[in-house]
C-alpha cells in the first residue's frame, strides 16, 4: 500500500502519517513546508496545478500511489471566505481532478468535519450534509463545500469520507499544541481565569475525539476499506463541552469559569464577545446540532480506542512540560 497524504505536515495529518507508517504502509507526505515526521516528505501545494510537483516527482507519485488521504486546508474558525474556500473548495476541486489521473488509485479518504453540518436542523446522521442549515463561519462553509465536492465525485472516484468533531490531544509533532485556531483557542482564555458564557453551562456534547484514535480511524478507512461510505467518529464517552474545558484545565489547577446568565443571556454574551471571549467560542456557546450517536455503528469493529485521559494530556501539553516533570 502506497499512501499519499495531502496536508500531512499538519496536526492530524502528522498523526495519520505515523499511523499509516506504523501499520507498514509506504507513506508519502505532501505539504507546502516539505516536512514530514513519518514517511517520505514531498514539497507541493494543492493550490497549484498538478499539486505543484516537478514532472519527475509527479510521474513517480502518479505511478506508485494507491491510497490517498485528504487532510489539507485551513483550520481557522475565524478566517474569511478567501482563506477558507481557497483550500476547501478550489483546492479540493483541483485535488479531485488530480485523483482522477491516478491509474493505481484504490481508495481515497477525505477527512471532513462535523462542523460542515453548521446549525443543522433535526437529527443528523452520516447521510445528511445539507439540511437547510445556517453556517456559523466560513470554516464551516468551506468544509461543507469540500464534502459537497467529494460527494459529487463519488460517482467516478473511490473516495470515502470520515468526519470528526474537534480533535484534541498532545501534538504528534511535539511541542506545545497550537492554540491559534479552533476550539483550543479558548484554552488560554480559560486557563487565565476569564469567564466564558455557555448555554446550560456547557452541558451539551461537542463530539471531540483524540488525535490518535482519529488517525487510527483514517488508517482503518484506508485498509478496511471505507469505499464510498461516510463514517463519523467521536469519543464514544461523549464528553460535554463543559467537561472538556474542566478536564483540559485540571492539570493547571484551574477550574474554568463557565457562566450562564439566563435572564440576560444574550446581553451577557454580547458583552462577553466585546471584552475578550474568543470569537471561536462565541459561535459555539449553544448546543451545536443533534447528531445521532448511532452513527458510530456504521464503522466496522473493532473501533479505535481513544487515549486514556487525552483531555488532561492536552492541558499538560499546554503547560509545555513533559508529564513526568509535573508529577503526573
Amino acid at each position: 500500500m502506497n499512501v499519499l497524504i495531502l496536508g500531512g505536515s499538519g496536526y492530524l495529518g502528522a498523526a495519520v502519517a505515523q499511523a499509516c507508517a506504523a501499520s507498514g504502509a509506504e507513506v508519502r507526505v505532501l505539504s507546502r513546508s516539505g516536512r514530514a515526521i513519518a514517511g517520505e516528505a514531498v514539497r507541493g501545494d494543492i493550490r497549484m496545478p498538478r499539486l505543484g510537483l516537478p514532472a519527475r516527482e509527479l510521474a513517480r507519485v502518479r505511478e506508485e500511489t494507491t491510497h490517498v488521504v485528504l487532510c489539507f486546508g485551513s483550520v481557522s474558525w475565524t478566517s474569511g471566505p478567501g482563506e477558507a474556500l481557497e483550500t476547501h473548495s478550489s483546492g479540493m476541486r483541483s485535488v479531485l481532478t488530480f485523483l482522477r489521473g491516478l491509474p493505481a488509485l484504490r481508495q481515497a479518504v477525505h477527512v471532513s468535519s462535523l462542523l460542515a453540518l453548521g446549525r443543522a436542523q433535526g437529527r443528523v446522521t452520516n447521510r445528511e450534509l445539507y439540511t437547510g442549515q445556517r453556517f456559523r463561519n466560513w470554516y464551516e462553509y468551506g468544509k461543507y463545500c469540500a464534502e459537497r465536492h467529494v460527494r459529487d465525485s463519488q460517482q467516478d472516484l473511490p473516495i470515502g469520507i470520515v468526519r470528526f468533531g474537534p480533535v484534541l490531544g498532545p501534538d504528534p509533532r511535539g511541542g506545545r499544541p497550537d492554540t491559534e485556531h479552533g476550539l483550543p483557542k479558548v484554552f488560554p482564555h480559560l486557563l487565565a481565569g476569564y469567564p466564558v458564557h455557555l448555554a446550560s453551562r456547557g452541558d451539551f456534547p461537542c463530539w471531540v475525539t483524540d488525535v490518535t484514535s482519529a488517525a487510527d480511524l483514517v488508517w482503518k478507512a484506508l485498509s478496511a476499506p471505507i469505499g464510498r461510505s461516510t463514517w463519523t467518529w467521536f469519543d464514544p464517552a461523549r464528553p460535554t463541552l463543559g467537561e472538556v474545558f474542566t478536564e483540559v484545565c485540571r492539570p493547571w489547577g484551574v477550574v474554568p469559569k463557565i457562566v450562564e446568565a439566563r435572564p440576560l443571556g444574550r446581553f451577557t454574551r454580547f458583552i462577553g464577545e466585546r471584552v475578550g471571549t474568543p470569537r471561536e467560542l462565541a459561535d459555539y456557546a449553544e448546543p451545536w446540532f443533534d447528531l445521532d450517536p448511532g452513527v458510530l455503528d456504521d464503522i466496522p469493529g473493532p473501533w479505535p480506542v481513544p487515549e486514556a485521559d487525552y483531555l488532561a494530556a492536552t492541558g499538560r501539553a499546554l503547560l509545555g512540560r513533559a508529564e513526568r516533570e509535573i508529577g503526573v
Binding site: G118, Y130, R136, C145
Partner: peptide, 12 residues
C-alpha cells in the same frame, strides 16, 4: 448544486 456564499453568509 452547492450552497452559494451569499446564502452561507445568512447565518453568520
Amino acid at each position: 448544486a452547492p450552497i452559494e456564499p451569499s446564502e452561507a453568509l445568512a447565518g453568520m
